[in-house]
């Protein structure tokens, strides 16, 4: 056992006292609910009656019998696969533009940042209007240039792409991170590259992007985790988009916006299947963890830290 001096013990005691609010919060509001949900995932539990042990029943049922399990996993993976890379691409391009030394730069930066502080519900409602089949801005623009216009939120094929396009609205928040990363790149690297005759494109691909990889890596990990938990925008857009039949319309046309978290929520609070929802939550955790580990492992090959 570690031998501590009197002074060290006193420091440890006070240290623990000072961080005790966090420790208590962690134990009561994070660790306990997590362990409880792990237990409930092996039970049939509706909150109102005592849980009944079913072993792996909920997990087996989810993967073999639930007609909507595949739909919600597919929708979520589709969303994550396209929205995260697209967001990274747009955020990097925007940050490069906003890093240029032009007049009124602060104004441009503010313009791109402001949308990211609009509450997600307001954003979703706004975009329902933009996506409106007849009077929406997008379809009006498409018609103006001779296209037919699409059923952004009413056509099952377009509902998810619409959601993905909408996520770009909040890209300003990550642009700030990329801007910080860009300003951290030493200027002499560009000077040396210029002297060596490197063009703008070469400078971007050989200096800027490699040295931005720590920020890209962060964005990728957080983006994937966020994408697997997408809920609010889909919930609002699904129910207001008018693309589905009566009750349950929150899931969009032909369940095209039935994302994992939303289906989990439905199971917990609309269908009273708390045990099943807990199992779904752990499956989601496993999927997210796996993806994050793959990204972490791969990061050794493509993330470059300036100081390294």
């Amino acid at each position: 056992m570690l031998q501590l001096s009197h002074m060290e013990r006193a420091r440890l005691k006070w240290g623990l006292i000072f961080i005790s609010p966090w420790i208590l919060g962690f134990l009561l509001f994070l660790l306990y609910p997590m362990l409880a949900s792990m237990y409930y995932s092996f039970t049939d539990y509706d909150v109102l009656r005592p849980p009944r042990w079913v072993g792996l029943g909920n997990y087996v049922r989810f993967f073999t019998k639930d007609n909507l399990a595949f739909t919600c996993i597919y929708n979520t993976l589709y969303f994550a696969t396209f929205s995260v890379p697209l967001n990274i691409l747009v955020a990097v391009v925007l940050s490069l533009l906003l890093n240029a030394r032009v007049k009124g730069l602060a104004v441009f930066r503010a313009i791109f940042f402001i949308p990211s502080i609009v509450p997600v519900v307001s954003t979703a409602i706004l975009w329902v209007w933009l996506f409106n089949t007849r009077n929406g801005l997008f379809n009006m623009a498409l018609r103006a240039i001779g296209f037919q216009g699409v059923g952004w939120l009413t056509d099952p094929a377009w509902a998810k792409p619409s959601m993905i396009i909408m996520t770009l609205w909040g890209v300003g928040g990550t642009v700030i991170i990329y801007l910080a990363g860009l300003q951290d790149i030493p200027g002499q690297l560009y000077e040396a590259a210029t002297i060596d005759g490197a063009g703008a494109w070469q400078q971007i691909t050989k200096i800027t992007i490699p040295l931005l990889t720590p920020q890209i890596f962060f964005h990728l990990v957080m983006g994937v985790i966020g994408a697997f938990q997408v809920f609010t925008q889909a919930f609002i857009m699904g129910s207001l988009g008018g693309g589905a039949l009566g009750m349950g319309s929150e899931a969009g046309p032909a369940n095209a916006l039935l994302f994992y978290s939303f289906y989990l929520y439905l199971n917990a609070f609309r269908f009273f299947r708390m045990g099943y929802a807990s199992a779904m939550a752990w499956v989601l955790f496993a999927i997210t963890l796996m993806c994050t580990l793959v990204i972490l492992r791969s990061s050794r090959r493509w993330v470059f830290y300036g100081g390294a």
């Binding site: 329902v128 007849r134 929406g136 939120l153 009413t154 008018g242």
Partner: peptide, 8 residues
């Protein structure tokens, strides 16, 4: 359904 959507 698209008619309903158009009513926004």
């Amino acid at each position: 359904l698209a008619f309903n959507d158009a009513l926004a």
